[in-house]
Amino acid sequence: MAKLDRATPLAGTGLERAGLCVAENTGLGLIRLQAFHRRPGAVEELTARLGIEPPGPGSLRSERDRQWFWSAPGEWLIAIPAGTEDAVLGALRAQLDGLFVVLSAITDSQVALDITGEAVREVLARGSTVDFHPASFGAGNCVLTRFAGVPVMLASPGRGEQILLFADRSLARYLLDWFEAASIDC
C-alpha cells in the first residue's frame, strides 16, 4: 500500500425519507481559528488583518468560498472546500503573522450533515430545546447546543430549509441512527 485511503465517518451513507434527508457533506474542509481574545483589542486587530468582521455569537457569515461560524468567544469554525485546508491555513497564517492566534485543520475530527426536507425543523426540535421556528432560527443563524444528548453545532446557511450539523466524527453513526428513529413518521 503506497498511500493511506481517506474514509469519512459515514462513508457516504445517509438517510432518505419523504420528509427528511440526512446526508454526509464530504465536500467541506474545516479550520478552527482561536484568538487570544482576553487581550484588549485582540479581536479588533484580528478583524483589521482579515479585512472582514468575523461573525458574532449565534451567527455565521459567508465570504467568497468560506463560511465563518462563531463557535466560542474568540473562536471560529471556517468551512472551506475539502482539500484546500493547507492552502487556506498558509494564507491565513501569512495574513495573521505576528498575532497570537492558533489555526488548526480539524476536518477529520468532525462529521458534517446536510439535513433537508419539509420536516427538518420538526425533527430537529425532537433533539434539542432550541427554538427552530424560522423567526428564531433563520438564515445566518448558528447555535452550539446539546442535540440528541451530544454537543453539536447547527447552522442555517440560508439555502431553503437546509440545516448544517457539525458534530464530533465519533458520533456520526449515533446521530444517523438517531435521525432514523426520530423521523419514523416523516
Binding site: 444528548g149 458520533l171 456520526a172 453513526r173 449515533y174 441512527d177 438517531w178 428513529a181
Partner: peptide
C-alpha cells in the same frame, strides 16, 4: 426513542 441501541449516545472508533 431512547431505547435499545439509542439508550445513550455512543462513539465509534475511526
Amino acid at each position: 426513542i431512547e431505547l435499545g441501541a439509542l439508550y445513550t449516545p455512543f462513539q465509534q472508533l475511526p
